[in-house]
């Protein structure tokens, strides 16, 4: 068995366990920051198992199918990432996956899920340029879109791509669905659009959304990892450390900030992408 097959299998089978644990830890830390004791570490798994055992309720016969496709394509995207494939293809596949979730919410045809879908779509438009610029930054430095080759560069990429790293960190909040950018849905109960994009989903379908997010969060952190890993053996520890710190910062931010309006979320994401992305790329081109 080759290394890439192994890591894909690991991702598919161990991935959700790790993702669920991260989510449990997230809730624990969040609780402590708020002066609560918090749920047990395994609470996310309990939640998902309970959801799976519930009766399946829907507004129509096909909405849940879109969420099923969403889960499948998220796993597909993550597998592409962990087999060391083409990073642009990973981004395109992720877009496809996210569109399935948006369509699921549209399909349910209720006011709250529709607003959630519109907001989710707006967020996609907001973060898409920066995500693409991240891949472009990797390519300009390493001359490759291939993730394995990107990881084998001489020095950590963040040294060449500090602006792009900051830009990516900015939109990562959106992708992780954390405050101040948890517009379309959030894990907290204080969402003004009920439960946003997930309003009409329940039972096993809601469990699928949850599991998809565990998978998704893992390869999102994989992007952070790519900025900090280089060809030196053992540098993966640096990458891992960076991921942990980054995730912790996201938790702090989540707890310390209020949700912004979509106008601000959108325009700031584009301004950040344009300013940091452009400057960083410009410097790289001038250095050539």
């Amino acid at each position: 068995m080759t290394g890439s097959t192994l890591s894909v299998l690991l991702y598919i089978f161990v991935g959700p366990i790790v993702g669920g644990l991260i989510s449990g830890l997230d809730r624990k830390i969040t609780a402590r920051m708020q002066g609560r004791y918090g749920p047990p570490l395994l609470q996310p798994f309990y939640d998902v198992f309970k959801l799976l055992s519930k009766e399946s309720i829907a507004v129509n016969g096909i909405q849940n199918f879109f969420i099923f496709c969403f889960l499948i394509f998220v796993v597909f995207t993550g597998s592409l990432f962990f087999m060391g494939g083409d990073i642009l293809l990973v981004i395109f596949a992720l877009t496809l996956a996210s569109i399935f979730m948006v369509l699921g919410a549209y399909c349910a045809n209720s006011p709250y899920s529709s607003i959630g879908a519109m907001r989710e779509l707006l967020q996609m438009m907001a973060y898409e340029p920066m995500v693409l610029l991240t891949a472009i930054g990797f390519y300009v430095v390493t001359k490759s879109f291939n993730i394995t080759e990107i990881m084998g560069f001489n020095v950590p990429l963040v040294l060449y791509l500090p602006g792009i790293f900051l830009g990516f960190a900015y939109i990562l909040t959106m992708k992780l669905r954390k405050s101040p950018f948890d517009l379309s849905m959030s894990h907290h109960a204080h969402q003004e659009v009920v439960k946003g994009i997930t309003t009409e989903f329940s039972g096993s379908t809601l469990a699928m959304i949850e599991i998809a997010h565990w998978y998704e969060n893992l390869f999102l952190m994989g992007f952070i990892f790519l900025f900090f890993v280089w060809k030196m053996p053992g540098s993966w520890l640096v990458g891992l450390g960076a991921c942990i710190i980054m995730y912790f910062i996201e938790i702090v931010l989540d707890n310390a900030s209020a949700r912004v309006k979509w106008q601000l979320a959108f325009s700031s994401a584009w301004i950040v992408a344009a300013a940091l992305g452009f400057t960083n790329l410009l410097i790289l081109f001038l250095m050539k």
Binding site: S56, V59, E200
Partner: peptide
Amino acid sequence: FVALKEDRIVTSYMG
């Protein structure tokens, strides 16, 4: 999916 579904169909949430 449609053939196998066992969802109970309910009305949507409208506020």
